[in-house]
């Protein structure tokens, strides 16, 4: 339990710094940045305390917001993603989630992809909607959501397969 706690705290800090110092400066094609810090929300223990999880997700988003000068958009997006996570887990992994015995590394690729993709898509959609904050930019919101999501999903799957040994 303690090592799990420690690895989650470490992941929180490392992901925030990775995001604000490196990934926010990628700017592929001018505006596409991956938001890899969602990985914290994806990997948080499935059986953990749900209220604490919501609060930590909020804190994660807020830390990124303070660095980015973006008000509360990352906090809101993380919060929504954390809130819908149980439903998406049940949708993607079905019966094994209800028995609380899934390990992300051991799940079939299709289920993992749908879980990661849906989570990232929801997070990014809320993020960019709040960033633009106007319906006039709906096309720009969708464009940014789509491209950034693809980038994030690829990076997330890569890092999942790179660092999966720990969770086996």
């Amino acid at each position: 339990m303690n090592s799990k706690l420690f690895s989650n705290i470490a992941r929180f800090i490392v992901l925030v710094f990775l995001q604000v110092l490196i990934l926010n400066n990628v700017n592929l094609a001018g505006y596409i940045n991956p938001h890899l810090y969602v990985l914290f929300i994806l990997l948080y223990p499935f059986a953990g305390n749900q209220s604490l999880f919501l609060f930590l997700s909020f804190l994660l988003g807020l830390s990124v917001d303070i660095f980015e000068d973006s008000g509360g958009i990352n906090a809101a997006a993380c919060l929504v993603a954390a809130f819908v996570r149980p439903n998406l887990l049940r949708f993607s992994f079905g019966i094994s989630y209800d028995h609380q015995n899934i390990r992300l590394a051991a799940t079939p690729f299709g289920a993992k992809l749908s879980y990661v993709f849906l989570m990232v898509l929801i997070h990014h959609f809320v993020l960019f909607s709040l960033e633009m904050f106007s319906l006039n930019h709906i096309l720009l919101i969708l464009k940014k959501t789509l491209f950034s999501s693809l980038f994030t999903v690829v990076l997330t799957l890569l890092s999942l397969s790179l660092f999966s040994k720990k969770y086996r």
């Binding site: 609060f55 973006s70 008000g71 509360g72 906090a75 809101a76 919060l79 809130f83």
Partner: peptide, 16 residues
């Protein structure tokens, strides 16, 4: 908890 935290983040966004 979700609604409270969400309201806080929306408040921060609007203020920004």
């Amino acid at each position: 908890l979700f609604l409270i935290l969400f309201a806080v983040s929306i408040f921060l966004t609007i203020q920004n």
